[in-house]
Computed example of a mutant assay.
Amino acid sequence: MHEMKNKNHKKSKFIVVEGIDGSGKTNACQIIKHKLDKNQIKNIIVREPGSTPLSEKIRKIIKNHCPYETLHQKTLLLLIYAARMQLIKNKIQPSLKKNIWVIADRHDLSSLAYQGGGFKINKKHIFFLKKMIVGKLTPDLTIYLDIQPKKALHRILFRNQLDFIEKKNLEFFIRTRNMYLKMLSKINKKIFINANLKINIVHHDIINQFTEWLKKYK
């Protein structure tokens, strides 16, 4: 007897959604998940930092660190990579091995953009950690939501509580976006979304471009 063809297609995929704060990544992840669900593709959403018990504790430290002690930029970088290590080893890689597609709200590109661009940390230090922690794990697709920093800041100001990163000034987010764009120019497997437009238009563009990409695996 011939085996029934797996509905999860050729193999599992690692999809990463990137962008500065306020670009709409969380909604984009849900849109991607809904599309995969409709195509009967098993999938999970993970977020960085977080999505494992230990990584979520690290997330709380990063988001609401002690007000009586300054969180050093390199300490922040190490915390992020510690959380990433837990996520990769305990959730992302095991899921991919089980033929479950992974949708990540941020991944390694965020560190290069935020820590390398926004905080101006020497990229050699970041690449060292990337090699040690991330290794050969690379996204099969990066979906980048591009938004002007001023518009993004306007959006996040409506949130009830701003975290450590969201409290940074406009220049910080300009540097972060510029680093994103610089690094994205070296990535071939990507979808570029103009997130400055009205939300319904942005969502429609995500669906259309992702549907076209998904056709290759049906």
Score class of each variant (00 low, 15 high):
61 I>R: 05
103 I>K: 02
43 N>I: 02
72 H>D: 06
49 P>I: 00
77 L>G: 08
104 A>D: 07
86 Q>G: 01
34 H>Y: 12
90 N>M: 13
46 V>Y: 08
104 A>F: 04
58 I>E: 04
86 Q>C: 07
92 I>D: 03
42 K>G: 12
100 I>P: 02
75 T>I: 09
81 Y>M: 00
84 R>Q: 09
71 L>M: 07
76 L>I: 12
49 P>F: 00
63 K>L: 15
88 I>H: 01
83 A>C: 06
75 T>F: 10
65 H>A: 11
30 Q>K: 12
73 Q>I: 15
75 T>G: 01
83 A>P: 00
26 T>C: 00
69 E>K: 15
50 G>M: 03
72 H>R: 03
76 L>M: 14
63 K>N: 13
64 N>R: 10
31 I>K: 03
42 K>M: 08
89 K>R: 06
67 P>N: 03
80 I>L: 11
72 H>A: 07
49 P>M: 00
97 K>Q: 09
66 C>G: 11
97 K>D: 10
81 Y>C: 01
91 K>E: 06
45 I>D: 07
55 S>H: 01
76 L>E: 14
74 K>N: 14
73 Q>D: 15
44 I>C: 07
29 C>P: 07
44 I>E: 02
71 L>N: 10
55 S>D: 04
39 N>I: 05
66 C>E: 15
103 I>G: 06
25 K>M: 11
32 I>D: 12
55 S>F: 01
35 K>C: 12
29 C>R: 01
63 K>H: 14
104 A>P: 03
40 Q>I: 08
91 K>F: 07
34 H>F: 10
85 M>F: 04
73 Q>R: 09
82 A>Y: 12
100 I>V: 14
25 K>T: 13
55 S>V: 05
49 P>T: 11
41 I>N: 11
52 T>M: 07
25 K>W: 11
68 Y>H: 15
89 K>Y: 10
56 E>N: 05
43 N>C: 08
24 G>N: 00
37 D>Q: 11
69 E>D: 13
89 K>C: 13
74 K>I: 14
43 N>E: 03
43 N>F: 03
92 I>T: 11
86 Q>A: 01
85 M>W: 00
30 Q>L: 02
26 T>Q: 04
60 K>G: 13
64 N>H: 07
43 N>G: 02
90 N>V: 06
95 S>G: 05
63 K>D: 14
78 L>D: 08
70 T>Q: 14
89 K>E: 14
100 I>K: 05
89 K>Q: 11
59 R>A: 05
87 L>V: 12
84 R>L: 10
34 H>I: 14
64 N>I: 15
53 P>K: 15
34 H>W: 10
74 K>P: 15
92 I>Q: 01
55 S>K: 06
44 I>A: 03
28 A>H: 10
35 K>I: 13
63 K>S: 15
71 L>D: 08
77 L>S: 06
77 L>A: 02
51 S>H: 00
92 I>C: 06
91 K>Q: 13
43 N>D: 08
99 N>R: 12
41 I>H: 14
55 S>L: 06
68 Y>P: 09
67 P>E: 04
94 P>M: 04
75 T>E: 04
99 N>S: 10
80 I>P: 07
33 K>D: 04
38 K>T: 11
82 A>N: 02
25 K>E: 12
88 I>T: 05
53 P>R: 01
34 H>R: 11
58 I>N: 10
38 K>C: 13
39 N>L: 12
